[in-house]
Amino acid sequence: MHEFWSAAIIGVSLGAQYALLALGFTLIFGILGVINFAHGGFYALGGYVAYSAVSGLGLPYPLAVLAAVLVTAALGYVYELFVIERFVDDHLATMMLTLGLYLMISTGLLAVFGPQSPEFSFPVKGSYSIGALRIAKENLVVLAVCGCAIGAIYWLIYRTDLGRALRALADDRQVATTQGMRPRLLFPLAFGLATGLAGLTGALVTPILALSPSAGDPVLVTSFLTVILGGLGSIAGATIAALIVGFIEAYASVYLGGSAGALVLFIMVLVILLARPTGLFGRQIRGA
């Protein structure tokens, strides 16, 4: 029976991480209409910034995480402002620009840090035992931070003027612009917010898993899968889909094995998309 509860804990933990990544991904699509192929790159970059801050500058880990968020958010802001903004309505161009940015980030990390995983471990160690069930403390910390970050994003999007402005732009850019919203100011902010979320996830998760220049490869696939399942551009959809993906991955891998687990995940997503082609919470037509 303890496998069932272990899988539940793993599912929640994976779901929270995926939600954080998917929220950033879907924010960019929902507000700008851009599919950000560099999302995995910001995740890996966040991990390396935190690692450099801890091992190079001797900063405590929480400050290193903050540094990772600020650096990735700043890079995202600047890239949107000076590069993406010029081609924001050209889907092919933005796809190539974000893909190019991903290649630049991963190659840059490879050149600076080398291909091998650096020694970067989470500062909280040990685990709690409940009978045969073991829960790693580091997973609980990550879960708590992810929960707070998701809550903060919801508060920002649904309870602040900035969030209302961003949602207005996502809903109908023309009408929002005539009402005084300024895309040139808000788009870089939204992009920076999303890349900061990816950086936060990288800084939190890579010390638990592994840090390498290619750490962002699987992240892009999972984020893409999650937001498509939730409905591109839907914040609630991304959160719920992330939890679904996390649970399917955990239960299928525990009960069917690693190979079958991946297969079940994709089959389930396929079935859901056949029933609801726009995803769980997606809309037929984007207003932006």
Binding site: E3, S6, A7, I10, S13, L14, L209, A210, A215, D217, P218, E249, A250, A252, S253, V254, Y255, G257, G258, S259, G261, A262
Partner: peptide, 20 residues
């Protein structure tokens, strides 16, 4: 024998299965 998808980064589910 227990196999996993190459590219897996979180082995927690596989580990749970192995230990079962």
């Amino acid at each position: 024998e227990e196999y996993y998808q190459r590219g897996t980064t979180n082995f927690a589910p596989i580990v749970t299965r192995i230990l079962s």
